[in-house]
Write a protein that binds this DNA or RNA. Structure first.
Lengths: 226, 226
DNA sequence: CAAATAGTGTCTATTAGACAATATACA
DNA sequence: TGTATATTGTCTAATAGACACTATTTG
C-alpha cells in the first residue's frame, strides 16, 4: 500500500448552545495522557468496524462521551501538524454542532465528566491540544452563519418564540438586531411554521414556532449588518 | 495508543482555472491500481517527515504530480467511508485551488500525465474514487464564493482587465452580470490596484489591475443575484 | 464616420435599520 | 388603567440590476 507512517486521525465536535445570553461549548475532562485532567472537545478515533463515515464517528463519540445527540451537525475543518499532539503528526477533523439547552440537559444529566463551559470565559480554563483554537474558529463560523442564515434556530428547543430566537442571534453576533428584520427574514425563509399554542415569556403572549419537517437551513442573499 | 485500525488518510486538490469561457479542472491519469488509467485529482499521502501539515501535503503533491503551484489554496471538505476506496475505510481531505491559465501553462508543460479537463464535459470521462462528487461539490463552493467575494481574481493571471474578470465570473456563475456592478464592487473591496499599463483586448484599451500585495479575499455583505 | 469594446451616470428594486404605532396580557 | 412585551407599519439607507450615455481605438 505505502511504505511510510500514516498520521494519527481523529474526529472532534464543537457542540454549542446558548443559555441566559451566553454561548456555551460542551467539553469533557480528559481521563488519560496526554493532557490528562484538562478540558477537551468530545471526540476520538474512527471505529472502522462500526462507523460508516466520519460523521457517524462524530455522532457516536458525542453520544458516548456526553449523552447528547445534537439537532444540527456539519463538518467544519481539519487541523493537522506535528505540534498539536505530543505523540506525533496528527489530523483531527472538527465537526460543528448545535442543540437547544433544555433538550441537551435532558440527555446530559448522567454524564458527569461532560460540562457546558462559557465560551467568553475560556481564557481562564486549561484546554488540551489545539482545541482552544478550534473553538475560536468554530465560533467565528457560527457568527458568520448567524448573519446570513437561519442556523441559530438549532440553538433553541423544538418550539420557540421570535423573542427567544432574537435573543440567541444577539448573543451570537454580540449586538442587538431589529425584531422587524428578523420577522421579515422568518417569513421569506419559509423554514418555520407557526403553532397554535402561545408561550408566556413576557407580558403579552408570543406565538410559538418550530422548524418545518425536512426544512433545509435557509441562506439569505444579504447579511445582517456586521 | 489505540487497539484498532486507523482509516487510510490522503489529501487531494481540486485545482480550477477558467479559459475561453470554460471552467477546467486539473486531473492526472492514475498509474497504479486501484482505478489504474482513470482520471483522478492530484493528491496522495501525507509524508510526516516532510510535510508540516496537510496544506503542505496538498501543495507538495500538486507540485510533484502536475508542476503547478496554485495562487490560491484553501481547505475544502473531507470525504470518508468504506465505499470510496476498495482498500477499505478511507478519509481524503480535499483542498480547493485556483490559478490563472497562462500562469499554469508555463509550469505544467513538462508533465504529460496532467491535463485540464472541461468540467462541463466530465460526464463522459471515467473518474477514480468519488472524485467526480468532490469536483461537483468544489464547483458549487466556487460558484457561491463568486457571488459574494472577490475570489475569482485568482482564476486570472497576475495582471488582468475588468472585462476579463467579468468573463470569468460569468463563466463561473453561468449568467451575465452588470459591468457596473463589478466596478462598484472592485472599488468598495479595495483589494485591487490599477496599473499604469493598458491592455489591448478589444477596440478601446482597458486598464490593467492586479491584486494588492498582502490583500485578503474580500467578502461582500450582499450576493450578486443567484 | 461606423463598429466594437471600455467606462460613467442615474434610475429602479430589494431588503436591512430605525422607530413610531398598535395589540395583548397582567398587576 | 399603566406597563411591559409582542407585533405591525412605514420611512430611510445601502447596494445590485438595468440601461442609456460617453470615451477610445481601429478600419
Amino acid at each position: 500500500m505505502q511504505g511510510f507512517t500514516q498520521p494519527l486521525f481523529s474526529v472532534d465536535s464543537v457542540l454549542f448552545t446558548v443559555v441566559d445570553g451566553r454561548l456555551k461549548v460542551l467539553m469533557v475532562k480528559r481521563a488519560q495522557s496526554p493532557y490528562e485532567g484538562l478540558w477537551a472537545l468530545p471526540g476520538g478515533y474512527v471505529d472502522v468496524a462500526q462507523d460508516v463515515n466520519t460523521e457517524a464517528t462524530a455522532n457516536r463519540k458525542l453520544k458516548d462521551k456526553t449523552g447528547i445527540e445534537p439537532t444540527y451537525l456539519e463538518q467544519f475543518k481539519a487541523y493537522s501538524g506535528h505540534e498539536r499532539d505530543p505523540r506525533g503528526f496528527s489530523v483531527t477533523l472538527a465537526y460543528f454542532a448545535l442543540i437547544g439547552y433544555q433538550d441537551a440537559q435532558s440527555q446530559i444529566a448522567t454524564v458527569e465528566q461532560a460540562q457546558w463551559l462559557d465560551v467568553a470565559s475560556l481564557a481562564s480554563v486549561s484546554i488540551a491540544f489545539d482545541h482552544r483554537q478550534i473553538i475560536t474558529d468554530a465560533q467565528q463560523r457560527l457568527v458568520q452563519k448567524a448573519l446570513y442564515s437561519m442556523l441559530p434556530v438549532y440553538c433553541l428547543p423544538a418550539q420557540f418564540t421570535i423573542g427567544q430566537l432574537k435573543d440567541v442571534i444577539e448573543t451570537l453576533i454580540g449586538r442587538p438586531i431589529q425584531r422587524k428584520s428578523l420577522i421579515r427574514r422568518i417569513e421569506s425563509a419559509d423554514m418555520l411554521e407557526e403553532l397554535d399554542e402561545m408561550a408566556i415569556t413576557g407580558k403579552r403572549q408570543a406565538k410559538l414556532y418550530r422548524v418545518k419537517a425536512g426544512a433545509e437551513v435557509h441562506h439569505f442573499q444579504r447579511n445582517l449588518e456586521g
